[in-house]
């Protein structure tokens, strides 16, 4: 496999605040990586560094390029949706297509037209006349018509209703994703994307808390639902997190033998959200 992104000891300071604190990771081709973290964890700063929108310390290579110094070359092969509000409100749909077609060597106008024809977005409308969901459809149609190697999505479905959110991700998979392409996504609505992710990364206080493929996550982490004496016994296996649900204990274990736990109660693969909470609390304890 080839690494699309390689970060070695990357840091970004704002005064004395370390927004990104000495992180190292790599992203392989054909993966869908979810970058999960609370507000102010450094997610957006890290994405900006990847996109060449901000400089940083350490070694950062994206598609073999220095993102800050070679931003124009990089943008021919990267797309990003930073927030649903970024399309200029004054522009007409047809003008937007004309512009992207003129400046982007990897944009396919027919492909964008085809994707747009499946929506209610009309060419003569201005962006300000479209609903929020339609603006996102428009943006995604443009992005999906660009033959880019890496797609970066920062809270792409913020402020959309549930129908559009679901549709966004299913369109993303259907129209955009293939083994030649890679997606990096951040969102607060983890539960909506966890079934499409191939990899997950937790970032808290500028540091990476977890960086693993999803299959490893389901192998290494297990959630046990137990009560009474079984819960007491389970506790001796040192769960990384414990919470109460309807009078029972839900304990999250890392690397503990499943056969030992299976005797004590029901086992589940933890959701990303629960795992995140456990890791963050465990890290701060």
């Amino acid at each position: 496999m080839t690494s699309l992104v390689t970060a070695r000891n990357v840091s970004k300071h704002f005064g004395s605040t370390r927004a990104v604190d000495d992180v190292s990771f790599s992203i392989e081709k054909g993966r869908i990586l979810g970058l999960i973290g609370p507000n102010g964890a450094g997610k957006t700063t890290l994405l900006k560094a990847l996109l060449g929108l901000t400089d940083c310390d350490g070694d950062l290579s994206v598609l073999g390029l220095d993102p800050f110094k070679q931003r124009k070359e990089l943008m021919q092969n990267i797309c990003f949706i930073a927030d649903v509000a970024v399309l200029p409100r004054w522009i007409r749909v047809s003008q937007l297509l004309d512009y992207v077609e003129a400046v982007h060597p990897n944009f396919s106008r027919p492909r964008a037209e085809e994707l747009l024809s499946r929506t209610k977005v009309k060419h003569d409308k201005k962006v300000r006349e479209l609903s929020k969901g339609m603006v996102t459809q428009l943006h995604l149609s443009i992005i999906a018509a660009i033959d880019a190697k890496l797609l970066v999505l920062d809270e792409p479905t913020l402020g959309l209703d549930i129908i559009f959110r679901k549709e966004f991700y299913s369109n993303l998979l259907a129209d955009y994703f293939d083994e030649e392409r890679t997606i990096l996504v951040t969102t607060h609505q983890v539960e909506e994307i966890e079934n499409i992710l191939t990899d997950v990364m937790f970032i808290v206080d500028g540091k990476i808390l977890l960086d693993a493929p999803m299959e490893t996550v389901s192998e290494s982490y297990v959630e046990l639902l137990a009560s009474g004496a079984n819960a007491e016994k389970a506790r001796s296996y040192k769960p990384i997190h414990e919470r109460d649900v309807f009078g029972k204990k839900v304990m999250l274990f890392e690397g503990t033998d499943r056969s030992l736990l299976a005797e004590l109660g029901e086992l589940h693969t933890p959701s990303i959200a629960d795992l995140f909470v456990a890791k963050v609390k465990g890290a701060s304890a």
Binding site: L53, K72, L74, M75, I81, D83, V86, V100, V103, P105
Partner: peptide, 9 residues
Amino acid sequence: LFWRSLPVT
């Protein structure tokens, strides 16, 4: 942010 997402310096 949108304008800067395109390959234009």
